[in-house]
Lab assay of single mutants.
Amino acid sequence: EDAPSSDDLEQFAKQFKQRRIKLGFTQADVGLALGTLYGNVFSQTTICRFEALQLSFKNMCKLKPLLNKWLEETDSSS
């Protein structure tokens, strides 16, 4: 699987934040939901840093598919 470019990540982080707010979730909600869904709880700080593009590139790449999946799950259930 190709690693996303930093442009991709930036684009995704923006879209993710907009969708999250529109769906009415806090950063902490998302962190907990990831724990429920995938067994990895993320702190509010981590989600905040992801949205602000302040995580390392490697961590951004790791989180992106999880957050993407969460969006898909959340979209389909709302």
Score class of each variant (00 low, 15 high):
1 E>I: 15
1 E>T: 13
2 D>Q: 15
2 D>Y: 15
2 D>C: 13
2 D>K: 15
3 A>I: 15
3 A>S: 15
3 A>N: 15
3 A>G: 11
3 A>C: 15
4 P>N: 05
4 P>K: 10
6 S>Y: 13
7 D>V: 08
8 D>V: 08
8 D>L: 04
9 L>T: 07
9 L>S: 01
10 E>C: 09
10 E>G: 06
10 E>S: 04
10 E>N: 11
11 Q>M: 08
12 F>S: 03
13 A>E: 05
13 A>W: 00
14 K>Y: 07
14 K>Q: 13
14 K>A: 13
14 K>W: 05
14 K>G: 05
15 Q>L: 08
16 F>H: 03
17 K>S: 06
18 Q>R: 08
19 R>S: 07
20 R>A: 02
20 R>K: 00
20 R>Y: 01
21 I>T: 07
22 K>A: 13
23 L>V: 02
23 L>Q: 06
23 L>H: 01
24 G>S: 04
24 G>C: 02
25 F>W: 03
25 F>E: 00
25 F>Q: 04
25 F>G: 01
25 F>N: 03
26 T>R: 03
26 T>K: 01
27 Q>V: 08
28 A>R: 13
29 D>I: 00
30 V>K: 05
31 G>H: 07
31 G>E: 08
31 G>M: 04
31 G>Q: 06
33 A>C: 04
33 A>E: 13
35 G>A: 10
35 G>N: 15
36 T>G: 09
36 T>W: 03
36 T>S: 14
36 T>H: 06
38 Y>K: 09
38 Y>W: 05
39 G>Q: 07
41 V>H: 15
41 V>Q: 14
41 V>W: 09
42 F>Y: 13
42 F>R: 04
42 F>K: 02
42 F>G: 03
43 S>T: 11
43 S>R: 06
43 S>I: 05
44 Q>C: 04
45 T>F: 12
46 T>G: 00
46 T>H: 07
47 I>Y: 03
47 I>H: 00
48 C>K: 12
48 C>M: 12
49 R>W: 13
51 E>P: 01
52 A>T: 10
53 L>Q: 12
53 L>D: 02
54 Q>R: 08
54 Q>Y: 01
54 Q>W: 02
55 L>Q: 02
55 L>E: 04
55 L>P: 01
55 L>N: 08
55 L>H: 06
56 S>A: 04
57 F>S: 09
57 F>M: 11
58 K>A: 10
58 K>D: 08
59 N>C: 08
59 N>Q: 11
59 N>M: 13
61 C>L: 11
61 C>W: 09
62 K>F: 07
64 K>P: 02
65 P>W: 05
65 P>S: 08
66 L>N: 00
66 L>A: 07
66 L>T: 04
67 L>G: 02
67 L>M: 10
67 L>E: 00
67 L>S: 01
68 N>Q: 12
68 N>R: 10
69 K>V: 03
70 W>K: 01
70 W>N: 01
71 L>E: 03
71 L>Q: 04
71 L>T: 00
72 E>M: 13
72 E>C: 07
73 E>P: 05
73 E>Q: 13
74 T>A: 14
75 D>K: 08
76 S>Y: 04
76 S>R: 13
77 S>M: 11
77 S>G: 14
77 S>V: 13
